[in-house]
Simulated assay, not measured.
Amino acid sequence: MTTRSNNLPLWVQDRDQVIAEGTGVQWRYQTPPDYSRSKKNLARESTRNHLEGTLEAIVQNLVRTFEMEVSFKTNSQQWLSIVNDKFRVSTNGGSEYTAADLAAQGTYNLFMADSQHYKASVESFESSAQLFHTTFPQGFPWEVLEVFSGPPNVTFKWRHWGHFDGAYKDYAPTKETVEIIGMSIARVTDDLKIISLEHYFDNTLFLEKLTAGGKQTNSESQGSACPFSSWFKKFHKS
């Protein structure tokens, strides 16, 4: 699949193009997201450089568009990347969720659920997003590593990473790069909209990395209060 991106559907082009062509969108923070900082981080830290128009680049664009829409478009009916009335998403073979579920609760809450170190049941969309922004103040980028099969059932391996420079709840930052490697299967239509999405990754290992630094003392906790909280609504997910 080597068609130039400007001949492909909008939702598998660069997400900045999707944002630019959006009209009447109900943005979560009233204004469109700005991914300029994310692009700099991706250019510096990505391990892959997929050529425009390749299957890898198309899959990467599609998932990044989907993640942008989940994070910033409050009305799931306006998401271009999915077949809204059919869409379902699951993690590690667990419960399936709709687009409306994602829009209301956010990806962190639905994909991680309740565990010793994260209680999805008590977190809101906004509180979970702020928590992980505090933990990864430089962003939490995502990239496709490899695509194993093409449409209609796209199977691919991916990498999520971030610099653990801020506290996670009351756990001290380790200043290390935290990396998640996962697999996903996306069932798509002929025009590359997502019908269903299955994610597989070790979220227990992820949380173990975020608690490896141990509990902070009260003085450490006060000294490391998130300096970004006053402009949280301007934060744009990678």
Rank of each mutant, 00 (worst) to 15 (best):
H199N: 09
V147I: 07
F164W: 01
K193E: 06
L131C: 07
S124P: 01
V154W: 05
F201T: 09
F125S: 03
P152E: 06
V154T: 11
D190M: 05
P137G: 12
T211H: 01
N203Y: 00
P152M: 05
Y171F: 04
V122S: 13
A100E: 15
W231M: 10
I195T: 14
T135H: 03
K233W: 02
T204K: 04
K233M: 09
I180N: 09
P137N: 14
S124K: 05
F156A: 14
I185H: 04
G182L: 08
W231A: 08
D190Q: 14
F111I: 12
Y200A: 13
Y171N: 11
A103L: 05
K215R: 07
H133W: 14
L205I: 09
S196Y: 01
S230R: 12
H133K: 15
C226E: 15
T189H: 11
E179C: 14
F201I: 08
G139S: 07
G182V: 11
H163N: 15
K233V: 11
S127M: 03
S128W: 00
G166T: 09
S128M: 00
S127F: 01
D170R: 02
A172R: 07
K237C: 13
Y168F: 00
K193M: 06
P151H: 04
G139R: 05
A99G: 08
T177W: 00
Y171S: 10
Q105Y: 05
S238R: 03
E220P: 00
A100C: 09
W231R: 14
K169S: 06
S127N: 06
K234N: 15
K175G: 08
I194Y: 03
S230I: 10
T134I: 07
K175M: 14
A113P: 01
S184E: 11
S221N: 11
S238G: 11
Q105W: 04
S124R: 05
E208S: 14
L205C: 05
D114A: 02
Y200N: 14
P152K: 03
P151Q: 11
D202G: 09
G139P: 05
N203T: 12
K237V: 15
I181R: 15
L110K: 10
F164K: 03
